[in-house]
Design a protein around this nucleic acid. Sequence first.
DNA 1: GCCGTTTTCGGCCCGACTGTTTTCAGTCG
Length: 573
Amino acid sequence: MAVHNAEIAEIFETLADLLAVRGDNPFRIRAYRNAARTIRGNSRSMAELLAEGRDLSELRNIGKDLAAKIATIVDTGRLPLLDELSSRTPKALSELMKIEGLGPKRVKVLYEKLRVRSLADLERALRRGKVRELPGFGPKTEQMISERLERFAAREQRWKLIDAEDVAEPLVRYLRDISGVKEVTVAGSYRRRKETVGDLDVLVTAAGSSPVIERFVKYDEVAEVVSQGSTRSTVRLRSGLQVDLRVVPQVSYGAALYYFTGSKAHNIAVRRIAAARKLKLNEYGLFRGDERIAGKTERELLKALRLHWIPPELREDHGEIEAARRGRLPGLVTLDDIRGDLHCHSRATDGHDTIEQMARAAKERGYDYVSINDHSRHVTVAHGLDRKRLLAQVRQIDRLNGRLRGIVVLKSIELDILEDGSLDLPDEVLAELDFTVCAVHYRFDLPKKKQTERILRAMDNRHCNILAHPTGRLINERDPYAIDLERIVQAAGERGCILELNAHPDRLDLDAEACQMAKEKGVKIAISTDAHGAEDLRFMRFGVDQARRGWLEAGDVVNTRKLRDLRKLLART
DNA sequence: GCCGTTTTCGGCCCGACTGTTTTCAGTCG
């Protein structure tokens, strides 16, 4: 069984935690963490790279030593260094460090003085009031750990972007109304448009006299004030979402926005560039000695560092800084580039609007075309279309297109890929359509090899044009089914199949890494909403955000093309 | 342990807040 990148990253992260508890060289620890991040964020699997004979030390943050350790893990599934270390420092200490407020130093004290080596041990020590007696601890720290242990046990998951927006937008309006407040921006992973966010980082510029912090902690939705200083405050809202507010002077707005947008790894890398130029970068600006030389806007800041503009979606330290230095950043796809939607349902199956309503809504968005992709017969719960009903729908769309002006409705289907990889309707029926979107909707539990072969076989059919929601994951609800995505992307390229980036905020499937992999292999992407009603067409922007995170340009996305060009891309020989 | 506009050794991002302190350590982002 091939070792996954996530498992290798996990081993390095655990190792870093244990080294930290032991008080090892902090830079060595950081090296392990950086390597873990590189591995986790790589679209190619380490096991496969090794199988191809690639030298892993070509990867950033991976040197000779770690390349050898990765090879060991891939070969044996273990790392002797971690085994040796965990015989002296229990692995579970790494788990304890995941509790907010517990870092290596406190965990070390807890372990050495109270023999705390598990969450259960910690809970017992807290209950007995032992923790407050430790040096450097006290009743407040004990209380803090107690609350956060409870929260950790409940394990709140990250928020979907769309849900975070529902919380963030009214909060931003509230903050804008406070006297003296000038700019209010939600930064952090929200601004980078990650598919999920852990908390909200809100940046405010305000006059010195503004009561913004005082008013912030009194916001109606605040359940708990976690911290409150003069420039920074953290609260937990009733919804459970945590919000960090930072107040900076206007002259620092760009530097602060840059800093609080992150990612952390990106910031560290940019600060290193500043340091290399004998400059200091912090959230207040870019400084030469005591003199602020930039910081009012992000553009000014980047210019002073001789970097091209880096869109927030790319700020992950995944090669964007090097590209910005050389002026080689991609011109990312935008919502304005999108000319149509290639995955929409109608009332004929589980949608709730008519084909005509969908078409008019698409036209209103400025689209040139929209396709109707109702389910095929296998999806009985959605009253999937059989041959007869599909052909009737085809004729209905022909008539509609005769009437409609300024929008073309494309005849399509969301066709089930059956368990054996065959398609749910016969070829001669599919030939009546402009194209098909094919998808797996059942038997998510097949072993990886079988599931992969099922999809590969479906793609062998020349009527299979677009593979919908390729991994089947539902954010926070369902993991991707087991597939060899790299093989599927490769096969899509060879067969002229297009991969869907499903823009539905519950799916966002493909993820950013997979988009990058598709781009590298020259496979085209369709960004589609999977709309089940006219109002769902608005989800397109989430798909575009995700595509941008995956470095996609308009040329990589088929539904930025004019209809004539789109038809050429959809034609398989 | 990695890395090179400081280039094969000697660096490695930087500031705010809290609690336990009496000048600072720990943690976080």
